Simulated scan of single mutants.
Amino acid sequence: MKSVSAPAGHRAAPGAAPGARPLLAAGLLLLPLLSACGEDHVSRYPQTTFAPTTEMGEIQIGLFNLTLWLGVIVGLLTFAGLGYIMWKFRYRPGAPEPKHVHGNTTLEVAWTLIPALIVAVIAVFTVQAIFATQPPPPANALNVRVIGKQWWWEFQYPVNGGRDTVVTANEIHVPVGQPVHLLLETDNVLHSFWVPQMGGKRDLITNRVNSLIFTPREPGVYLGQCAEFCGDSHALMKMRMIAHTPQGFQDWLNNEASPALEPTDSASAVALGKKLVTTGVCAGCHVIGGTPMVGRTGPNLTHFGRRRTLAAGIVENNAANLHAWIRNAPAMKPGSLMPQLGGDIPNALTDEQITYIVAYLQSLQ
């Protein structure tokens, strides 16, 4: 008997029956998903919402999972019913036409009540989550004022019973185990505060103060950003939330409340940089505690050297990046209010002067 080979392009895998081809293809599609299960999810996706570290985040992911699994169940039942109907009433030569079921009251009531019941269940849990994630601020909460800028973040901490204020930028520090109450506002356009592992987004609206309350549970560094389109450098408006142990947070706060350290050698690059910063163009926009600088347009630089990033989290805080930022900030962040200070412009700072400024700013620990 003459054998018949499969058409070109439709050969089964060696050792596999023709009916196994769909299963083999499905297995190949699932391999990337299965291989990803063994990897560290947070390291691959540092702004994931699926690894919450606060009670607010856990409530939100719980509501998401409820909606997801109800949707999966509805989808599976729908496709199962569709598959049964396609098989049961498939075309067969000589078979009579199936009976019509138009006007089946039981069926119509079922497909109306079941979705309504599912939506009602989701609505109940949604309302509970809304109230649970917007409670009144606890008496022991740490109050932090958050101000959205163009395009960076300012964080203000009241100290000494509210008589003084610690001001920092682009890195918000919080203690583990203590409720944190963020007072969110903007001094320009709309922004949206979002640290995914801490909880949901909350808008910063002009002439209004919004509130966000959560309790960090694990020390670590959590990445965040603006989640509301706010202009040219919206995607470059990043931040970091650093969760400390209670003692670690208190140590950080005490250091931030102290003035900047003075250079020990008056002839050093640091001392030359301080003179350029405190008496030059920088003084018009920035504040450094313990110096005559009183500018309020740009970030507070009192302890700038301790920050891990600059330009609102877009680059590492090192000498090379800081030099490039001072020389031509708009080239790194379009639309930034930080002007170009070096290069081919009138009265530009020389590269040597910028090097001195970098040395001073990095000394501000």
Rank of each mutant, 00 (worst) to 15 (best):
F155E: 01
H181G: 01
Q128W: 15
G273E: 09
G9A: 04
P158N: 03
A257V: 03
I354R: 05
Q340S: 03
D344F: 11
A12T: 14
A120L: 06
P135N: 07
T126R: 12
L113Q: 12
Y45C: 13
G71I: 03
M241V: 10
I85S: 14
L322D: 10
Q250T: 14
V180G: 08
P263G: 07
L70R: 06
G220M: 00
G27E: 02
G9V: 00
R163V: 13
K88T: 13
I354K: 06
R44V: 08
M338A: 12
W152T: 10
L253G: 05
A139N: 10
G280S: 09
R92A: 08
F50T: 15
F50W: 14
G313P: 08
I345G: 00
V74T: 15
P7H: 00
E256V: 08
M86K: 14
E108V: 14
H100R: 14
L212G: 01
V119L: 14
A51Q: 10
A329L: 04
G273F: 10
L82T: 15
P330S: 01
Q156H: 11
Q340N: 01
K2N: 11
P339D: 03
M198C: 01
V174Q: 01
W152N: 13
V174D: 01
L142M: 02
K88I: 03
D203N: 12
L66T: 09
N317V: 00
W153I: 06
S35W: 13
A132D: 10
A359L: 04
I130W: 10
G305H: 09
I147H: 04
K149G: 11
G162H: 06
T215H: 02
V287A: 13
P219D: 06
I354H: 07
L63N: 11
P135D: 01
H102F: 15
V221F: 05
H234K: 13
L28P: 00
R306I: 09
P135T: 04
P138I: 07
N143F: 08
L24D: 08
Q150E: 15
A267H: 12
I345K: 01
L66H: 04
M56W: 05
P7R: 02
L183Y: 00
N255R: 15
G290F: 06
N328H: 10
S233W: 10
S268I: 07
A243G: 04
R217A: 11
E185Y: 01
L30Q: 11
Y356M: 13
G148N: 07
E316S: 10
E262L: 11
A235P: 09
M56A: 06
I114T: 08
A235G: 13
R240E: 05
P96A: 12
A348Y: 02
L337V: 13
G342P: 01
V315Y: 07
Q47T: 12
